[in-house]
């Protein structure tokens, strides 16, 4: 992959990671390591711990998610993240906007490929 393609992809990712984290937490609460791991299992997103943790901190400061320490069945307690009420509303709005974008893009990309 060329350098230029790489940087273009990273521009894409930055905008998407936030939505990806909200989507992941929408399906239930999770702790930091778990969020990193589950997002890393989607190589297309190419998200690392270095992106996830600062974003979690920012989402928490803006009130879209909150965190709580919970006992873990194995090992020491873990800090779990979950969507706040406000975060749920924001997620719904962002998901809707995203659908609009993907529909439009599918359309445009489909046109190009003459499907």
């Amino acid at each position: 992959m060329g350098n230029e393609t790489d940087s273009r992809l990273s521009q894409f990712r930055k905008g998407v990671v936030e939505l990806a984290i909200l989507a992941l937490l929408h399906s239930g609460e999770a702790y930091g390591g778990e969020i990193v791991e589950r997002l890393a299992s989607h190589p297309g997103l190419a998200i690392s711990a270095g992106t996830v943790y600062p974003l979690l901190s920012r989402l928490k400061k803006s009130g879209l998610i909150d965190s709580v320490w919970r006992e873990s069945p194995v090992g020491p307690p873990r800090k779990y993240y979950r969507l706040s009420t406000e975060g749920g509303i924001e997620f719904a709005a962002m998901a809707k906007a995203w659908d609009g974008v993907t529909d439009a893009m599918d359309d445009l990309l489909g046109e190009g490929a003459a499907r």
């Binding site: 930091g32 943790y53 979690l56 901190s57 965190s67 800090k79």
Partner: peptide, 12 residues
């Protein structure tokens, strides 16, 4: 963090 003394998000 690398030495596993803390986790990145231990403190808000």
């Amino acid at each position: 963090v690398k030495l596993c003394l803390i986790k990145p998000d231990d403190e808000d």
